[in-house]
Design a protein around this nucleic acid. Structure first.
Lengths: 344, 344
DNA sequence: AGCCGTGGTTTGAACGATCCAAAACGGCTG
DNA sequence: CAGCCGTTTTGGATCGTTCAAACCACGGCT
């Protein structure tokens, strides 16, 4: 209650350890950062001293000198009014835990729009010496990426720079392959009339996923005419589109959706008709949100762990690697996986 | 491409500004931190110099000297396999944006259990000089809070220290009041037989919420015998409990649930029977999760923004305030609010 | 005139790490 | 034994800020 916490011994510094081991500061520093420069027996002695004193390097001092903070910034998304957003949350979780393994930490920021976000970059970069940024939800002509590039700040995006030539590092999921797999799965289960509910054309992500559906159907010469719908993302629109499809004179026996929200809409419509998803009409969504897993909706899952890992690979490579030679691939397309549940 | 980013002028420091304004470092520092010590005309001159040079204080240097990092740690929760967890995500969002207004940032960490979490504290505290911690999901005999208290690290919890005397700062939501309001709302709408689905007795949160239901019913002399159920939290168990209640010879016309997952289960059961939530049987959940808002489920919303604000108040008060005199209240119980939707 | 107190400002020394240049050490050669 | 060379180790400077004490000018007082 009164003073500081427990043992009031001053925090050990390099100096403390050095004295104890009978060497100089720099030698201790070398043992930590470049052991190859130090004679093995000295290393042992120093390591022992570190152990005994419980020494921990002070990050602020290091940052001050080296201008590296070991901090990565990521945006905390505003709670969205739908099912989505869950993917970004679990991505953030994965990013945090994997970053910690590499001794990096994730710092959060929020922003309402791109302009605010850029302001946040500016502040974080110059005040906190942030090392790198992870962006999600990239869109066409993204002002954020150009700002970061101009200011020489390392960054990766989770999501392709749709429609732009941008040659920055990015990691993304092969949405077309995911929907292709989902459709193939339905075909294997015997479905011949398969519907698709997507987003209005023009969004890179949506068009990409739709193409997976189309190519799977084309391969098997399935007729898709009249079986596709394009609506904005929400449960209500998904339900309406699902109703339309089910009301056709020759309705589909399975429906693939570009998102879990839409799929949940269809799911709702099916149950409201007294039918059972899966045995009566199959549905598959995209993103494998918590809600999907709870109600038993099949869905295409994005490998958030791998995405996080790959993003960090790109970042650390840019941070530690040779400035000029960026030999390794800077772009990565990861395959999603279909999670089959009762609904298909 | 080649060198650094744009204008290669070295980053201005206190020294730079001082030279330009014709004063010393310390005076510039005073203008920023303790303007009352500086003569007004000098302040003006220095402010101008700051403006011209675009000076920004360097956080690492300040941290090194003052041992304050302006960083607050919060745990990124593992994605839970249910509807829940959404509350913590939006709390985290609120915390991040409000902290930024006070010039603090939120640093994430992850942990699988309490032991790991304590290890994380240790690392963050000694390596990164973290200023404070925000904990959620406190439980009985929480090892984390005692560790933090022992090590003199400031912290607040979102959630009461159920069953313990602990006198640390906390902020929580009055669950009893929330469920009481929900029940009153149903009574006002004319319901006389109201059911309740809660969690097994023993959890502080669950018992608290149940008490709100009971007191509202007692006030109106409503009979609750046979109308309550206790199940673990999930959609399936909620659905089953809902079915039980609806199968009673004299079934309830409304059901209050301790969580949105349970309420969604009931919702599912109602629609599966071809009935309409709201007009046929009313349901109300707790937490106002995104899913609830999407499907139109009434729910008790926790004021995450206020919780975040209050938590930060407690923290900054502990950080900046006088060490001994902690005059202001260290505990805060906030009222939730009922969000009425189609289901009630 | 000399002393004191007092706002306002400057100076020097931390904080704890890393960078750099130079010194000490050791072995080896001529 | 001097001279050289490569490996280890050392000491000082530095990053940008704040703390503590010194300094200075100036007016009031005796």
């Amino acid at each position: 209650m009164s003073g500081r916490g427990g043992g009031d011994a001053a925090r050990p510094s390099l100096e403390t350890v050095a004295e104890r081991a009978g060497v100089s500061r720099q030698t201790v520093s070398n043992v930590i950062n470049s052991p190859e420069l130090v004679r093995p027996e000295t290393i042992a002695r120093v390591r022992a001293a570190i152990e005994e004193t419980g020494y921990r390097p002070n990050r602020s001092a290091r940052t001050l000198r080296t201008r590296r903070s070991y901090l990565i910034a990521a945006r905390m998304q505003a709670p969205v009014d739908g099912i989505n957003g869950a993917v970004l949350d679990s991505f953030l979780h994965a990013l945090t835990s994997r970053a910690a393994q590499r001794d990096y930490r994730v710092l959060l920021y929020t922003a309402e729009d791109d302009a605010q976000e850029i302001a946040a970059y500016d502040e974080l970069l110059s005040d906190f010496n942030l090392d790198a940024f992870v962006l999600a939800n990239t869109h066409q002509n993204d002002a954020r990426t150009t700002w970061l590039a101009e200011h020489g700040a390392p960054f990766v995006t989770f999501g392709r720079p749709w429609g732009a030539e941008a040659n920055h590092g990015w990691v993304d999921v092969d949405g077309a392959a995911g929907v292709y797999d989902a459709t193939r799965h339905l075909i294997r289960r015997g479905h011949r009339r398969i519907g698709f509910i997507g987003w209005p054309p023009g969004s890179g992500v949506g068009d990409d996923r739709r193409s997976g559906y189309l190519s799977a159907c084309a391969e098997e010469n399935l007729d898709v005419s009249g079986l596709t719908r394009s609506v904005v993302d929400s449960l209500a629109t998904g339900r309406a589109a699902g109703a339309e499809l089910l009301n056709l004179s020759s309705p589909p026996t399975a429906i693939v959706c570009v998102s879990d929200s839409l799929a949940l809409g269809v799911w709702t419509e099916i149950t409201a008709r007294g039918l059972t998803p899966g045995s009566d009409v199959a549905v598959i969504g995209f993103d494998d949100t918590p809600t999907a897993s709870v109600i038993g909706l099949s869905s295409v899952a994005q490998p958030v762990g791998d995405i996080a890992e790959a993003s960090l690979d790109l970042l650390t490579q840019a941070l530690d690697g040779a400035p000029g030679a960026s030999a390794a691939a800077k772009q990565l397309l990861l395959p999603p996986s279909l999670v089959v549940r009762a609904s298909s």
